[in-house]
Amino acid sequence: MRILDALALAKLNNLRLDLRRHRVDGAFSGRHRSAHFGFSQEFAHHRQYAPGDEIKFLDWKVYARKDRFFVKQFQEDKSLQTYLLVDASGSMGYRGAGPSPKWDYARALAMAMGYLVMRQDDAVGLVTFDSKTRAMLPASRKLTHLELMDKSLVEAKPGGDTDLAAVLRAAAGAISRRALIILISDLLGDSKSILETVQVLRARKNEVFVMQVLDPMERDLSLEGPVRFEGLEEAEPLRCEVELVREAYREEFDKQERMYRGGFHGAAVPYGVFYTDVPWDVMLPGFLSLCSRF
């Protein structure tokens, strides 16, 4: 894998995507209420115990050997379908004050989330998009699928406009089952329609996580003097004195963030903001704990 190195993977090993509380049609919620009662099913694999798991599935032999709790999982358990929606629009290629472009950050996050989900033995799919869906990998539980995702993300280059709302609607159509949708984007654009679309996804009983990737420059606008801003997505540049608009820009930015925060909170969507100046592995635990709280 090119995006995640061994160190990152090692760090990820300490993290866990805890989805017990999420009522998804997958591994955890449907397990006991499935038509296939009991544990006569074919054993699939072990999974580390988490508080809340049924104690009767604990594998005591493994505990005796490893001094750690593991639960047995069976083939019949429905696995969660997770789709990573990664924004590959032009604005994601932006690099301002951060050490790397947002795109690099976003695909690292995508791979990390993918890895975490896959480690839960759940299926992961990948959708990269700008104004329309660019590439789509269907959800799969094979570990080799991770390699495919990695390849796809490495080959993708950010460019083109975003029409996040339209893409989300299209994705919602493509995703048949109730699924976990992890949206990784800078969420720049028409914030209202983005919110609405996320709410539509939620209304269709999907779980949605939103990870917003931003450059510190987009927050602080720490430039000086007269600047001719050229958008990465649109043609028409904007010329202005930064000092004059900085205050207003920050207020606008705050307003938008408040709106996202409020809107996503209202829709029970975990929402995390990732700035590229903070390494993703520092930020990820906080987000994951946020996810588990929802």
Partner: peptide, 8 residues
């Protein structure tokens, strides 16, 4: 270059 000019 700037990512998105909507807010700006």
């Amino acid at each position: 270059e700037f990512s998105d000019l909507t807010l700006l």
